[in-house]
Simulated assay, not measured.
Amino acid sequence: MTLKQDDFEYAGLNSRDDLQVEMGNVVLPSAPAMAEQVTDIPAMYGNQFNGMDFTSRTISIPVSIYCADNQDRFNQVMHNLSGLLLSDDPSDNGKEYPLIFGFEPKVTYWGHITAISDSAPINPGMYDMTLTITFVQSDPRATLPQVEKPLNGGLNTITVDGTARTAPVIQVIPKRDLKYIGFSLNGGQFGLGPETPNDQANAIQSDIKVIDDPIASMAMWTNNANAIGGIKTDDKYHYQGSADINSNTTSMKVAYVN
């Protein structure tokens, strides 16, 4: 759904259609809450600066409810508003949801609702009310739409919008079985797959292991179909229950049929 200029969307809920409110003028904060970290050193001129704490960012969203003299409708809108924005499901506690404004639909703010103020009348004696929804971002940054680009041979330069650093998400879809995938980027290295040589050797096995004879004994082997009929690998029969011994090397292999 395309957002109108004076609409917002929170957790997939449209302010006008789902919450039945009209958004007022939203003034975005210029920066998150910041706190200077310093240490006082005895007999030192000045103090030791230990950096800045960049914490959460708060966005206040003024909204209006227009119900004229219909108190029942106003009560229903308020119940819907609090019920949709403030979940009573314990499993939802700790979750954050996307917030998108109609005046900048490409920007997404991730956060949570911390307060819904008491409603104040616009016209005395009527149920036209205004209130404020307080939205807090744990991570004060905003996100822009994801940019997808296939990697080509040589140097790959991907330019994205925004003012903050962003980390690439690399998706590899192999066309054949691979034990390890890696490439170098600006002097660094990136690898996908097991790290240790032993794990790499077992990551993709070229053959399906269907027999195991650690004591090199054939005493317990049988070709009886009743004994081996229930043995399957990924719900498919990969062998017919017979084994061949190479007299030259004394190695054993599965005898495939068809």
Rank of each mutant, 00 (worst) to 15 (best):
D17P: 08
Y127W: 15
A201T: 06
I204R: 05
M44V: 04
Q71S: 08
T166R: 11
T58P: 13
V27H: 00
V160R: 15
E96S: 12
L155S: 14
W110Y: 13
I59H: 07
N186T: 00
L19Y: 07
L155P: 05
S206W: 13
S30N: 13
I181P: 01
V77F: 02
I116G: 08
R16E: 10
E9W: 10
Y97F: 12
N198S: 13
T249Q: 00
A142N: 03
E9R: 15
L13I: 12
A33W: 15
N152M: 14
P214C: 03
V160D: 10
N224Y: 11
Y180H: 01
P197A: 11
Q137H: 09
A219N: 13
S119W: 11
L19G: 01
A43P: 10
M252W: 12
I181G: 09
I231S: 14
I211G: 09
L131T: 09
Q48E: 07
V169A: 13
L28I: 07
F135P: 04
G241W: 12
G162Q: 07
M220W: 14
S64T: 10
D92K: 08
W221C: 13
D18A: 08
Q240I: 11
K149D: 02
F135H: 06
N198P: 12
G24T: 02
N75Q: 06
M52P: 03
P194S: 06
M44A: 05
I208F: 06
T108N: 08
A120S: 15
A167N: 13
D7K: 14
K4F: 11
M23F: 07
M52S: 04
P145V: 04
P121C: 14
G94L: 03
T143W: 15
L131R: 05
L151H: 13
K106N: 01
A216H: 07
S91K: 00
S56W: 07
P42C: 05
G102H: 11
E195W: 01
R57F: 09
K106A: 07
R57G: 09
T166K: 11
H238T: 15
N223I: 00
Q20W: 00
A35S: 10
E148I: 09
A225M: 04
P214M: 03
A11P: 09
M129H: 05
D89I: 07
F190W: 08
I231H: 12
T134N: 03
P145I: 03
I245E: 11
I211T: 04
A33D: 14
M34H: 15
T222W: 10
E195F: 01
P168K: 15
L151E: 09
P197S: 10
P145T: 01
M218C: 14
S87Y: 02
D17Q: 13
N25L: 06
A227L: 13
G193N: 02
A255K: 15
L28E: 00
G24V: 00
F101A: 05
